[in-house]
Amino acid sequence: MAGRVIVITSGKGGVGKTTTSANIGTALAKLGNKVVLIDTDIGLRNLDLLLGLENRIVYTIVDVVEERCKLKQALVKDKKNPNLSLLAAAQTRDKTSVTAEQLKDICEQLKKKNDFILVDCPAGIEQGFQNAVAGASEAIVVTTPEMSAVRDADRIIGLLEAKEEIESYKLLLNRVRPQLIEQNDMMSVEDVCEILSTELIGVIPEDTGIITSTNKGEPIVNDEDALAGKAYRNVAHRIMGEDIPLLDLTPKETFLDKIKNFFTKGKV
């Protein structure tokens, strides 16, 4: 078995890399794939929290690199989802504790026994980014329809393009607010795609459910009703090669809108 190694990156912090990693990882595992999530944000680990695995971590990636344990021992299996396991980052160390070569080596080993290895990349374009990208052959660039996030994504895309090992990269547009787009106060999905000229793998709407799901330590893909959960499940299907149309995010008409439309249409 030769698994796919996908790095999830963004440049800018706070756009939802870790949330995306947790959700896509969970969704892929639920579809029957063997998935390993690697948190490479050493010193600022959070992926364990989003998955609700924070109390079960014994060994971290730094322990593996420094040979205090075997790779297999450091993988924390999700009890609710036995296909999913996590290789956590060390919280008390920094990005220099692991080299790009070492991470590449870990990915190579994990590839043999898993379908997907998702690497959660830290923010920034320094050592942490270089490490995370080292073992990957595919990338998902997470961005939001905000200027700073799009600019940083452009920078990241430039860096990914320069890397020979990255064979393909796709864009995931997160925290989209259809209402604001409708009002022309937020860049639309098409705007961002045109500016970055990159293929889209998914559009995730802003959803307050993300906060509550993080509170519970359970990714939102487990919530069948949540729109963001559905969007992430679609992304997982697309990663597996299925052709699924983007979610329709046009805002639903409220009562006031109906009155408004009645009058404006009446005039025309």
């Binding site: 200027m147 600019r151 009002q183 022309n184 106060d185 937020m186 860049m187 639309s188 705007d191 500016i195």
Partner: peptide
Amino acid sequence: QANTKNDACNRLK
């Protein structure tokens, strides 16, 4: 309604 989206697009480009 102000059309801030176009501002963002143009400045970004």
